[in-house]
């Protein structure tokens, strides 16, 4: 029997069959939508500081004008040194009180792609009456995630409709709670004390994270701790509709703290936890084991150049 004949027979055979979905099936699906939450990428779900209503208004105004003329006291000052990955403490100069140059900065919110020639700012909501603003000029090739993170797209994602999108990223956050178990995180949320060490201790105790020993660092003259956490490389993972589906974990997500869930096994979070005049700021540089070293170094350079201020 020829291949053509086989194909004709198969095609004819496949023509026979049901072509109409019963209404009851469709009705059942639509009824269940209300109780079926949508899953979003971990980077889509990144904590958005603009939830604060007043902050929304402030950001909207700034976005319309494309300018918030901001005094950045340290923009032209020598950058403080950033501690290396190895546990070698570094000492950085404190910020000076030299006259502040005036520059234009744009809010990170609403910026799908970032212009290296511009300065952007992130406004983190106030905690206990203190808020933090962060200013930076990104290297080429970065985009914003909401108003709380920037990322570099993974060029390898272009060949897949749902491939891994992020090569490297940097998030700005202020967690006050942490999950004691990132996989079984429901009912395992714990309040964290106010200090840098409080947060470091809880994060380092998360099971399966292979936490590095925390080291002292300074960023923009601000003291803190740096440690790395890893999503277990062997945790069950299924890429359904994109990144971040851990079938053995609650709701299929692996979460460090509320608002921070992860993209896949092996993901590395390089956390810089700083004390900004009593405000605990977390700089979360995250990437993959196969992210090129140059891109990791670039994240460190971004951190080294941050200008962090309280308001």
């Amino acid at each position: 029997m020829s291949s053509e004949r086989v194909t004709r027979i198969v095609r004819s055979w496949l023509e026979d069959g049901v072509d109409v979905l019963p209404d009851r099936v469709l009705d059942s699906v639509l009824e269940r939508l209300a109780t079926t939450p949508q899953r979003r990428h971990w980077w889509q779900a990144w904590r958005d500081p603009s939830v604060n209503a007043l902050l929304k208004i402030a950001l909207a105004g700034a976005a319309v004008l494309v300018v918030a003329v901001v005094a950045i006291a340290n923009l032209n000052q020598p950058r403080p040194e950033i501690g290396p990955a190895v546990p070698t403490p570094t000492v950085s100069p404190a910020p000076t009180d030299s006259p502040a140059p005036t520059v234009s900065a744009e809010p990170l919110a609403g910026q799908p792609s970032l212009d290296p020639a511009k300065t952007y700012f992130v406004m983190l909501p106030a905690v206990a009456g203190v808020g933090v603003d962060i200013f930076f000029s990104p290297p080429p090739g970065y985009a914003a995630v909401g108003s709380g993170a920037i990322y570099k797209p993974d060029p390898r994602a272009a060949s897949s409709p749902e491939g891994r999108l992020v090569l490297s990223a940097l998030g700005f956050d202020y967690p006050t709670q942490v999950y004691s178990d990132p996989c079984l995180w429901i009912s395992n949320v714990v309040d964290v004390g106010p200090t840098v060490d409080d947060l470091v201790t809880v994060l380092a105790a998360q099971p399966g994270r292979n936490a590095t020993a925390p080291v002292d660092v300074t960023v923009d003259g601000l003291a803190g701790k740096r440690l790395q956490l890893t999503v277990p490389a062997d945790i069950p993972f299924e890429s359904v509709g994109g990144e971040g589906n851990f079938p053995d974990c609650n709701l299929g997500e692996f979460r460090s703290w509320p608002g921070r869930h992860h993209g896949g096994p092996g993901q590395i979070d390089d956390l810089w936890i700083l004390d900004v005049d009593g405000y605990r700021l977390v700089l979360d540089a995250f990437y993959w084991p196969d992210t090129p070293a140059a891109d990791v170094t670039e994240l460190e350079a971004i951190i080294a150049a941050l200008d962090i201020r309280t308001r």
């Binding site: 899953r39 979003r40 990428h41 509709g241 994109g242």
Partner: peptide, 8 residues
């Protein structure tokens, strides 16, 4: 429906 937000 559940995974639609992840479709790039």
């Amino acid at each position: 429906w559940r995974d639609l937000p992840r479709l790039r």
